[in-house]
Amino acid sequence: MQTVSVTKDLRAPIGRLWDLLLDVERFADYMSDVEWIKVLDVRDDVRTAEWSVILRGSILRWSEKGRVDPSRHRIDFEQLDGDLSVFQGEWLLTDLGGGLTRASLRIEFEIGIPLMARMLDPIARESLRTNTSRMLEELEQRACAPEE
């Protein structure tokens, strides 16, 4: 299994960033790599959603179950169905004080084509790292923009 982890200190309060993370259907409004997200169901702390993102010029689609933990500002997710064999990970926000928040996004994945893994894994890993970094940057920009 391959892992991509990106952590950035964002100049935005944790409450604002958390609210944005919970409003995933609006990601496409301000995240350039997100084509669309549709929340299918929310029950207690579990959210089921379908995602479509642009990854290195290709469309990657999946449905996922996310466990939302507001007390820890954490969302753990795992793919239910989709283009990859495995796609799971977590969003985590940590309040650093003074309006600064550490945001982490970790993704574990398997492409699911064993004979091609040696060639495709490094490309997918770098593409996901770029995509993940951009998502965190765009999340910070949105958090700092005037609220609509």
Rank of each mutant, 00 (worst) to 15 (best):
R125H: 11
F87I: 02
P114S: 12
T94L: 12
L100E: 07
D95C: 01
Q141A: 15
L136M: 09
M135T: 08
R67L: 07
P122G: 10
R125D: 03
E64F: 02
E35N: 10
D76N: 12
R16Y: 05
V24K: 03
D33L: 04
L93M: 11
R134L: 13
E110W: 01
R125K: 15
E78Q: 14
N131H: 12
G66F: 02
L139D: 03
T130L: 08
G98R: 04
R125I: 10
R74E: 13
Y30C: 09
A49M: 06
S71G: 04
L136R: 06
V24W: 00
I59S: 07
Q88P: 01
D45F: 00
I107K: 06
E110Y: 03
L139S: 03
T94V: 15
D23F: 00
M119C: 01
V68E: 09
I113A: 10
L21I: 08
T94Y: 02
V39I: 14
G66K: 02
I123L: 14
I123N: 03
L105D: 07
A124M: 15
L22S: 12
W91H: 13
V53P: 01
G97L: 06
Y30P: 04
D121W: 07
S127G: 09
R72M: 08
I107L: 12
F87K: 06
I123R: 05
S104K: 15
G15Y: 02
V68A: 10
W51Q: 04
E108Q: 14
I113R: 07
D83W: 00
S85T: 05
R102F: 09
W91D: 07
D69Q: 05
L60G: 06
V34K: 03
E110R: 12
R125M: 06
R61Y: 00
R118P: 00
I113N: 07
I75V: 13
R56Q: 10
R102N: 14
R43P: 01
D95S: 07
G15H: 05
A117Q: 13
S127W: 06
R43S: 11
G57T: 12
R72A: 15
M31D: 07
Y30E: 12
V46K: 11
D19C: 04
L55P: 02
I123G: 05
A117L: 01
